[in-house]
Amino acid sequence: MTHQHFDIVVSGGGIAGLTAAAAFGQAGFSVLCVDPTPPVTERDVAGSDLRTTAFLQPARSLLQDAGLWARLEDHAAPLQTMRIVDAGGAEPKPRVIKDFDAADISDLPFGWNLPNWLLRREMVAHLNEMPTVDLRLGVSSTDLFTRQAEARVQLSDGTTVTCKLVVAADGRNSTIRQKAGIDVKTTRYGQKALALAVTHPIPHENVSTEIHRSGGPFTLVPLPDFEGKPSSALVWMERSARAHELFDLPEEAFNAAMTERSCTLFGPLTLASRRTIWPIISQIADRFASERVALIAETAHVVPPIGAQGLNTSLGDLKVLLDLAVEQPDTIGGREILAKYDQKRRSDVAMRIKGIDLLNRASMAQSPILRNARAAGLQALYGMAPVRKMLMQMGLGAK
């Protein structure tokens, strides 16, 4: 039996997987990208992903090189300022407000925010136009066999393909990772995140606002206007029981709860989409590569949605892997390249996960003593200009 052969098989059609397919295809490699579930590409239908992704500066550069940014730029809301608010006093009112302005370190915004459902729509349309990419939606990877020279991937439609490299981007419960025999370490916080869109009377002025009280951060990220009103994406992290209570509230009561938790910084908040709810975990794979297989994105690591680090860290994986492949195109998927990829990425990701874990635990703090310590820490960090600049550069992925 003759098997179809590709340079690269990308298993997983989330945002990271679709970006990987575009990036490798643009670099001249033949790519097959598969995903069992065709993406929902409309805002207000069942199953749409109402979360948003803030692409930081390095991520935008990768999207430009992959040929994707031209399709996305007109839909993006720039993030010029990151505002951190501590509201940990007796009442939900701001005690400390600190702004981190991108102008302090760059001529560009920190990043650009886009809805996930729209990202999938534009990325799928782009991949369907690429002669180097075969996109098969409704098809999954079911089995994997590797040897020194190539990998063989069994697909759910009964076909088998061979390739030089399998890029595993099939999520936190990855089939490819399991077939490759790679374990993960998982931390559960007892939290969930509500993700939705809101409108508000006070313009956001391209400021991303993260409000800390207890249970987890309450983050409003700029979106383009919706139905003529200023709009933001909201990610509201709370302990699981409270998150489910909020999820089930009648709309009027939910709007009131959102407005109170926001310290009314943008005036009354009004729900402008469905509510969705997501579990919060941290997870990291024991290694990011095995024979002919590289793990990227949530297959390799999962972090709480704080500081726009999730997908941007995932695209950091892709950038390293792509650069190695372009430098040595004849040996992609080889032992040397994958060893370098694992070495470069796992230590950096592990450090970021520890940092985000500490931030999340600090944001969850319920006792007044810990809340006061969090406020004092924010004041101290902001007050030291070199430290403030370093934190902003680290947030962008700069070394």
Rank of each mutant, 00 (worst) to 15 (best):
L127S: 03
D99I: 05
D134K: 08
I97N: 01
P109T: 01
L118V: 10
V124G: 05
D143V: 07
F100P: 01
P131V: 08
T81H: 03
S106N: 02
I105K: 05
R121N: 14
D86Q: 05
T132K: 14
F100W: 10
F100R: 00
V124F: 08
N116G: 10
T81G: 01
N128C: 11
G158N: 03
G158F: 09
F110W: 03
G138Y: 09
S106Y: 02
A149R: 15
R152Q: 15
L118F: 15
T159N: 12
R83A: 00
K98V: 08
M82S: 00
R121D: 15
L118T: 12
L108N: 11
S106L: 03
A103I: 15
F100G: 09
I84T: 02
G89Q: 07
L155N: 04
S140K: 13
S140M: 12
A102F: 01
I105M: 05
G88T: 00
A90N: 01
V139Y: 08
L144R: 08
I84R: 04
T159W: 07
V139C: 11
L118R: 13
P115D: 14
A90Y: 08
M130N: 10
L108D: 07
L108V: 04
F110K: 05
P109G: 01
G158C: 10
D143E: 14
D99C: 00
M123G: 04
A103F: 14
G89P: 03
P109F: 00
R147L: 10
L135T: 08
G138A: 13
V153H: 07
D107F: 09
M82H: 00
E150N: 12
S141K: 08
I97E: 03
L114G: 10
I84L: 03
D157E: 06
W112S: 05
G158R: 11
R121Q: 14
P94A: 06
R120P: 08
G88F: 01
A149K: 15
D101N: 11
V139H: 06
A87N: 01
I84W: 00
I84C: 03
S140R: 14
K93G: 02
K93D: 00
M123P: 05
I105N: 03
M82T: 00
V133W: 04
W112I: 04
E150L: 13
S141E: 10
T146G: 09
P92S: 05
P131A: 07
D104Q: 12
M130F: 07
E150Y: 13
L108I: 09
L155P: 05
T159Y: 11
D134C: 12
T132V: 06
M130E: 07
R136M: 03
